[in-house]
Amino acid sequence: MKRLINQQPSKAGKWLLGALPFILILLVYVVASNERLAVNPNDKLMPSFEAFGHAIHMMAFEPSKRTGDYLLWADTLASLQRLGIGVGISALISLIVGILIGIIPLMRAGFAPVVTVISLVPPLAILPILFIIFGLGEVAKITLIVLGITPFLIRDVQLRVMALPEELIIKAQTLGASTWQLIVRVILPQILPKLIDAVRLSLGSAWLFLIAAEAISATEGLGYRIFLVRRYLAMDVILPYVVWITLLAFLTDYLLRRLSLYAFPWQQNEGGAK
């Protein structure tokens, strides 16, 4: 028998092992839910799968009686829009600032300390300030996402730029590159896939800030809905929403990874995006 560290699962075994925890969680839920419902058929904490199906049908495939919208899709669209704009702005800012303070020592001396300090401010603590300044509309929510993840992204980009081999920077100069040319022809193309990696890592926080902002002030959105129906202990809506958010997060991550491999084929032998 080989040592445990040298035993590799077969392909089928890998799938089976991967699926096992999910099956176990489902099983535990079904058993517990059945027990509770047997004692009290009106139990709201652990609804049956039938109740889930009903709730999903109502949220996703029937227009709301009050607004006429299909709530799940309206919520999804609103949330994804906020998330997309927020993350997009953050990525753009961090790309520009991160590259500048990563490669230009004068910029680094000027801006790195302030970025470090800003990154230490807990974003949720300044959410009330954002609501006061920007009102309760979209701007405050998007600003929270931007403030929440941009400092992390800037520092990541800066470190990635500084980690580029010195040799490449010198080589570019011996080919006659100016600072600007060095940035657009050497640094930018090498940093873009790393920015995508950093964005993938920051998406978790982005969702956190989005849902926090929606919970406090919104009229639609996935986070808003969850906190709204919480008042009615509507676990049959909350749990499918949570699963849906998880699925969306997984899909965004997957798409970003595919984008990175597709747009930057040169990193395939480099141990880049995995």
């Binding site: 081999p165 040799e167 490449l168 080589k171 100069q173 011996t174 006659g176 090498q190 990193q267």
Partner: peptide, 19 residues
């Protein structure tokens, strides 16, 4: 500072991986 008068080849990292 380095310029186009002087070409260089290092032991490694001399070429650009993205090109």
């Amino acid at each position: 500072e380095p310029d186009a008068d002087r070409g260089i080849v290092f032991q490694r990292y001399s070429v650009f991986p993205h090109l």
